[in-house]
Design a protein around this nucleic acid. Structure first.
Lengths: 346, 346
DNA sequence: GTTAGCACTCCCACAAGCCGAGTGCTAACA
DNA sequence: TGTTAGCACTCGGCTTGTGGGAGTGCTAAC
């Protein structure tokens, strides 16, 4: 397929921009007046006819204006859209306050993003595949229960209750703690596999079975992290767009938001593809999620140090304001970096 | 207002039941055939006319059938509905598996409830106003940060990162841990007030400022619990009911579900009123939440030992299947009790 | 290659009309 | 006195039809 010539590009651009604004099919006369091309509507019509044949736009019905096709949007995003100068617009720093509780920060971010864009925002907590154990402690909570506290690099804290048949005496506990810390410290979840566990069990040999239980539980706790959290906000924003607010479609979409598991595929997909910007745009049926074939999805991955990555996403109608959305995502990326890297204040 | 006579009750009952089924205004002829009263439609009409005058039913427009008014629903719930025999229908016990993670259990319950009823379910974690501290530990995670782990009765675990200017030495830490445990153990969040804190600070005198910081942070952590979690499920179920799925109404409702803060008033209200059953029904504008004036809300409070109470709720259209809903809530109450009281399995 | 003009298409909003469900009322009946 | 049959009437919802408007494609002239 040959490239579009300059004039066609301009016209396509005008059509799409106009459609993004109004959501109505746009006609030749509108373009003729609206754009700075100084062409009559008739000429525009001819060009539009070509563009339609090439697949960039389509008519909902004869004698209606044209609307962009998926391919048209794609061309727009890839070639026509002007990159906004990445001036890191300062976002309110209210998120800094509670830095200890990551969920809250993420929730807030999602909320802000949704409010800024008027679309639905999703955000995942960074996944810690390669994150390392930083500190580890077992405590006797009562006669039959141990509490394991695990702190990962980045201060992600996990708790796990472990039932034991009998209480461990202090000394054993101390030894166990030392053993665990020395052997597991600095290892990532990935590196803690059956082999490591087996070795550990051997070293702890004397207390065999109890220790065994503890270790199993522990390993499970560290690894079970795979279930990554996904936060959404502004889910009802989709109801603002008539093309999505039809009861049937809305349900499917909202269901996808509630059943966050479905969103995982988005995240995975995004992670696997690395562009330089890390921003990914799915238009219509390009999306890995069936229910979103009438939407566009823009995702960005953020990285915090080695191996810790998360995903931010915006879901809206195909006629979303791509520039604004991508701009927002970019700045948020930077912000996230800052928030989590920064040694936290009290 | 005088009581309704037997026949009027029967007719009202028939009208409401029919309307619950169909969602359509119900006419006199339907009742005449449907019910076992063997009355002609004309007679029914007369009675219906009376019932309307008394405020139990109303006509959406002239020459349409009748639909129940809020007052009608109220009468139905209070007097007509047959109590289902409380046979504790066994719910799947799949929730038991992961008892350690309370959120998950609650999430699951909400999901199940929503699936069973086809309405929206909400459920709050038990609030621990009077719950007691069971175990408490400070650990040095790295040079500048302490991790406070607090275990409450019922094995609710909380974590709090505390930044310090300099590391505490081991001995100080040990002393501090002992001090904290002996002084705070068995106290409820309510009982840990400024007075207690001041006394503690005094006792810990020597390490004055650092300890001070730690205590403040700790007290904050224990009390901040007030922000009770609310889980929802099946939010999109409301879109199944035409009378609620209008775009405008749906947004308001769904917003209320997303902004869980709004739901708090429901919880509080429910807590304050104690009937013997603990089940509360809000019909239409009886609800404390404005947005829900076209819905009915049924809540139940569950109790786990002293002072720990939570709330389960169902939100649906006014023509909800009250019997089924209330039945579900009752059994869930029992189940919840069982799950949390039961000494948890591995 | 561009433009003006024109006939044509099709959606949409609105009005008119019909149908059916349901009512209220009246009169007859037990 | 309570119940029933009958009938005229009302009103919402559906279908149909019509006109207007927006937009197109095509043709012919510039």
């Amino acid at each position: 397929m040959q490239e579009l010539d300059e004039r066609k590009r301009k016209i396509l651009n005008a059509i799409i921009r106009n459609y993004l604004d109004t959501g109505e099919p746009v006609g030749s006369r509108t373009i003729s007046k609206y754009s700075d091309l100084n062409l009559s509507s008739a000429t525009i019509r001819n060009e539009m006819s070509d563009l339609e044949e090439l697949g960039y736009i389509l008519q909902p019905h004869t004698s209606a204006g044209r609307i962009p096709s998926d391919q048209g949007y794609r061309f727009y995003v890839d070639n026509l859209m002007r990159e906004k100068d990445q001036e890191v617009t300062e976002m309110k720093e209210f998120m800094i306050e509670h830095t200890e509780r990551m969920e809250q920060v993420l929730q807030q971010m999602a909320k802000m993003l949704a409010a800024n864009t008027n679309y639905t925002a999703m955000i995942t907590s960074p996944s810690y595949h390669k994150n390392k154990v930083k500190f580890l402690q077992l405590s006797q909570v009562d006669e039959e229960q141990l509490l394991a506290v695990i702190v990962m690099e980045g201060n992600l804290v996990k708790n796990k209750m472990i039932s034991t048949r009998e209480a461990l005496d202090n000394e054993t506990l101390l030894k166990l703690n030392i053993l665990l810390n020395t052997s597991l410290n600095g290892l990532s979840a990935e590196e803690i596999n059956l082999g490591t566990i087996a070795k550990l069990k051997e070293q702890a040999g004397i207390h065999s079975n109890i220790v065994s239980d503890v270790l199993d539980a522990l390993a499970g706790a560290i690894q079970e992290d795979e279930e990554l959290e996904i936060y959404t906000s502004g889910t009802t924003n989709i109801l603002k767009y008539p093309e999505l607010s039809d009861s049937q479609k809305a349900r499917e979409l909202l269901d996808a938001f509630e059943e966050k598991k479905q969103l995982v595929s988005l995240v995975n997909e995004s992670l696997s593809s690395h562009e330089e910007t890390g921003i990914q745009v799915y238009i219509g049926s390009e999306s890995p999620i069936q229910n979103m074939k009438d939407c566009s999805v823009v995702t960005a991955t953020y990285q915090l140090g080695e191996g810790m990555t998360g995903t931010i996403g915006i879901i809206g109608p195909k006629r979303m304001d791509y520039e604004n959305v991508m701009d927002n995502l970019k700045t948020l990326k930077v912000q996230l970096d800052a928030v989590f890297r920064k040694p936290r204040k009290t």
